[in-house]
Design a binder for these strands. Structure first.
Length: 497
DNA sequence: TGAAATGTTGGGGCG
DNA sequence: ACGCCCCAACATTTC
């Protein structure tokens, strides 16, 4: 084959890239292309924080390809038309790409393949973004898994033997006339108002940074992962989520790196930590499995009993939640961390999600949309799984009575209040005993710390005890069969950036 | 990947 | 010494 296109999507890496490696083997000339077509993911087009990450990740990929003597071509969608045009311009006879399983994008891919075939261009797709693709695992009865534990057992058994990651392919020098490319800035991925300083300070997108983060995690954090991953005041998690979402790192590379670390002396904790981390990768794959087999679940409850659930309507409460002004310290700290950095610790994600759906009684889709807009690691499968789990309506969901108490969660998982002090400077002078529940603090304590509830920091927008009891009643009675789904309209999610 | 209510136990104060 | 009460600490049940 003379010329092949490699269609990059959420696999913005050169190592362990099956499509790129296959193209490099098959064709004399490989043209890497990224087609910007956010509308094709509708209604879940990338949010502001994701676009920031994408901009920098494309920049990193472009630089890495340039260092190989290649060049990343940027085009605007629709994807089918852009690829057909580029194939015609370059004489490419095939398009290579790694499969994706987000339902709208998978349907788009199928349509693109038809369009390419009609134009006489072959296409070939590869596994690359999941260790086990959704069709690779089936229950005994031949169906899709809906419960994590049996999925996890099957997943582990299937992965006892797995192929090693592919090396970075050698890319042969491009021809004299590279096809035209848009400038990265022309994609307008960065915000016009530069709110992204907090993201820049915390994250470095790109393949090199992803591999460095994986190494650092395995060197420094994995031994303590089992406990420390629940502590939002420490750097105890892998922080690989966005790297994995954009495919700067493949899960196969992560698995291989874990397995490659020879068990050192005294490695019991390391082994436990590695197992716990692997389980998180398992949840990621489970989320993709479920969304693939139940594609409606990004919009509607998986459990039909929730179709008639009576969600509350409270735009002021939603806005307070979004901006970290609920008066509940751990909730506000989490929402402010999200707004400022594009990321939130997973323990705190569960707490703020429980607060939105159970204490405020708002539809989980409101939360899912806000997370999708503001998280750098926003991922439709993971986000859907997480929110439906919290709401109690999803696959293997939390039981309806599992309602987090943000005061107790702060006591347990932020024992020194370091997380709260970082994100709630107006409360920082309160002693540990009252910082996580200032609404109960004696007047003298508040005065000594210079805090006035209601002006320096909001009074709680709901009573935790009463709202918990109300949620228990609502969820208990809603467990019969329901009527029509009553999802909130789009664009009710408050201000965009 | 929960929290609160309820039940049980045992130590210590005290008459 | 003994019974009684209180309550913290822990276990179990319930939502």
């Amino acid at each position: 084959m003379r010329t092949a296109l490699v269609w990059f999507r959420n696999d913005l890496r050169l190592a362990d890239h099956a499509a790129l490696s296959a193209a490099a083997r098959a064709a004399e000339r490989v043209i890497p292309v990224y087609v910007h077509a956010p509308e094709e993911a509708a209604p879940w087009a990338p949010g502001s924080a994701s676009r920031w990450w994408l901009h920098h990740s494309l920049g990193a990929l472009g630089a890495a390809l340039a260092a190989e003597g290649s060049r990343l071509i940027l085009r605007r969608g629709p994807s089918g038309a852009a690829l057909c045009a580029l194939a015609a311009e370059t004489g490419a006879s095939a398009v290579f790409f790694n499969r994706t399983f987000e339902p709208a994008l998978a349907a788009r891919d199928a349509a693109v393949e038809v369009q390419l075939a009609e134009a006489g261009v072959a296409s070939e797709s590869f596994a690359g973004n999941l260790l086990l693709e959704p069709a690779a695992l089936r229950t005994q009865a031949g169906g899709a898994f809906r419960v994590f534990t049996p999925y996890w057992r099957a997943w582990q058994a299937a992965l006892e033997v797995s192929a090693p990651p592919l090396p970075r392919p050698r890319l042969r020098a491009r021809g004299a006339n590279p096809p035209p490319s848009l400038a990265l800035d022309a994609l307008a991925l960065l915000p016009r108002i530069r709110w992204d300083a907090g993201l820049t300070a915390r994250f470095q997108p790109g393949e090199a940074a992803a591999l460095a983060r994986l190494e650092r995690f395995l060197d420094e954090a994995v031994a303590d992962y089992t406990e420390a991953r629940d502590r939002p005041d420490t750097a105890g998690t892998s922080r690989l989520s966005a790297h994995l979402h954009f495919g700067e790192l493949s899960p196969r590379q992560a698995l291989a790196a874990i397995r490659a670390r020879a068990p050192a002396p005294g490695a019991a904790a390391r082994a436990r930590g590695a197992e716990a981390f692997l389980r998180q990768l398992g949840w990621r794959e489970f989320a993709h499995h479920v969304l693939h087999h139940f594609p409606h679940t990004s919009e509607a409850p998986m459990d039909p009993r929730f179709n008639g659930h009576r969600w509350r309507s409270d735009s002021a409460g939603l806005a307070a939640w979004q901006r970290g002004r609920t008066g509940i310290p751990l909730v506000d700290a989490g929402m402010r961390e999200l707004w400022a950095t594009g990321w939130m610790h997973n323990r705190v994600r569960m707490v703020v999600a429980s607060f939105l759906t159970k204490n405020l009684g708002l539809h989980w889709l409101e939360g899912a949309r806000w997370f999708h807009e503001t998280l750098v690691d926003a991922d439709l499968a993971n986000n859907t799984m997480g929110w439906q789990w919290t709401a109690g309506s999803g696959a293997d969901a939390a039981p309806y009575y599992r309602i987090f108490n943000p005061v107790l969660q702060a006591e347990r998982f932020d024992p020194d209040r370091g997380y709260l002090r970082r994100w709630l400077p107006e409360l920082a002078r309160l002693p540990d005993e009252w910082l996580h529940r200032p609404f109960l603090a004696p007047a003298a304590v508040l005065a000594a710390a210079g805090v006035t509830i209601g002006s320096d920091y909001p009074a709680p927008i709901v009573d935790l005890k009463r709202s918990r009891e109300r949620a228990l009643e609502t969820w208990a009675e809603g467990r019969g069969t329901g009527a029509t789904p009553a999802a909130p309209r789009r664009n009710s999610a408050g201000p965009k950036r």
